[in-house]
Design a protein around this nucleic acid. Structure first.
Lengths: 225, 225
DNA sequence: GGAACACGGTCGGGTGGCCGACGGTTGTAG
DNA sequence: CTACAACCGTCGGCCACCCGACCGTGTTCC
């Protein structure tokens, strides 16, 4: 089943595009600064593209980066990240292709760690290496736990949960119902119905490619069931 | 939902109780031998217990180890491993409690890596450290992929898939239908019906706490759907 | 400004799997 | 040997979800 594969990658991309995933402290970055260099990206240009060989990871220093999967017809935005986030590291360490594309929304300054130069540097600083990878393990484990936790909830609860997490960052979620459906692995119609109910109880307002979160408390309550 | 949590942990324990997970080469072990020592376990004794602080990882050198979760009434065996397997490492690195218990079936010789002593040693051998953690990352990612891949299959296909994997090692699977149901996160009745159909097509034979695999090809075919 | 397209909202039909229940069978403790 | 527990097998009712279809509206591009 091809679709399940995609869902997994969507989840993963989204998971690592979360603000709490910041495995490197500023002190760390200072130490391994010689393993990479600052790159400046104009709006609309790519940091990396899905499927390409992962020969570098990026630390966002400034601006916003959009994470998406698929191209053309099946293009789906799975998240947005700002300064402090590290992107593409899991793929780089595992020596597998990037699982998503990362594109600068506005002007972006980022620190680019090249794999070939980073590895020797990590050999010299095992402490950082250890922390980095353990952070990755943690994140991956958390994602997995999350997937299974959502597994046997109703679509309504799943949607509420997803929106609840998003609410911590912004009140406006700009995902189409189709994208949410793909992320959760459910049908678009079910998402639509769930949003309808959330709208009825006054938790959200819906618009074109836009969901405005009104009442976080109610979302949380619906998510538990 | 408490049950989903358990399912996650069951999966994880089972996943890391697979023979293919062997992050350390014998050369690696030789190098970091000073970070631990050989321990001998009599049949029935524990290497570690679920929920305890993960201050050590184990490399099985000889004998068979049973992995299980829960105790007393809810005890579920999720797997068995032999020589070469590494146990408890993910929990140790992440500094989280063990997610499963490991008990010697027969006489077992194992190498015990104590966390406090291992970490400094890994600092001295970053290459091993890197390989080990990347192996963990890979395994975790694979597990996750597997969970999601199975997600939208019918119970019949899920059961067939699980049995198919097991068939590579032994023709007799000694799991109760209830345990399988818990692993897959489905109801016991559904598992029963699935097994019934597999029996009809001549893929397996069923007995008390026992499933004998007859035709692996048929299992594989059913698993894809 | 108009056409092509993507998205939101809604309906009815079909179904896989859950739940509760019950009886028969196999293993186990006293 | 007997009582008890765990497990297997099966049934019927129920419900969340999927699928296909359709129309109105918002967006985008020339």
């Amino acid at each position: 089943m091809r679709q399940a594969e995609q869902q997994h990658l969507d989840w993963l991309a989204r998971s690592f595009g979360r603000p709490e995933y910041a495995p490197l402290s500023s002190a760390d970055v200072e130490v391994i600064r010689s393993a990479g260099e600052i790159v400046a990206k104009y709006p609309g240009t790519h940091l990396f593209k899905e499927g390409a060989a992962a020969d570098a990871a990026y630390l966002v220093e400034n601006g916003e980066v959009e994470i998406y999967r698929g191209q053309g017809g099946t293009r789906r935005v799975v998240g947005r990240v700002g300064p402090g986030s590290v992107l593409g590291d899991i793929a780089m360490f595992g020596d597998t292709p990037y699982i998503s594309s990362a594109k600068a929304v506005g002007p972006v300054r980022a620190f680019r760690f090249e794999r070939a130069r980073l590895l020797p540097e990590l050999h010299r600083h095992p402490a950082i290496c250890l922390r980095w990878l353990v952070a990755g393990l943690r994140q991956l484990e958390g994602t997995q736990r999350r997937v299974i936790r959502l597994l046997h909830k109703t679509v309504l609860a799943q949607v509420a949960d997803l929106l609840f997490e998003e609410a911590e960052r912004r009140r406006d979620v700009n995902l189409s119902q189709g994208t949410i459906a793909a992320l959760l692995g459910v049908s678009r119609q079910s998402v639509n119905e769930a949003l309808g109910r959330l709208r009825e109880v006054g938790a959200v307002e819906t618009g074109y490619r836009n969901i405005r979160i009104i009442d976080v408390e109610k979302l949380a309550k619906v998510a538990e069931s």
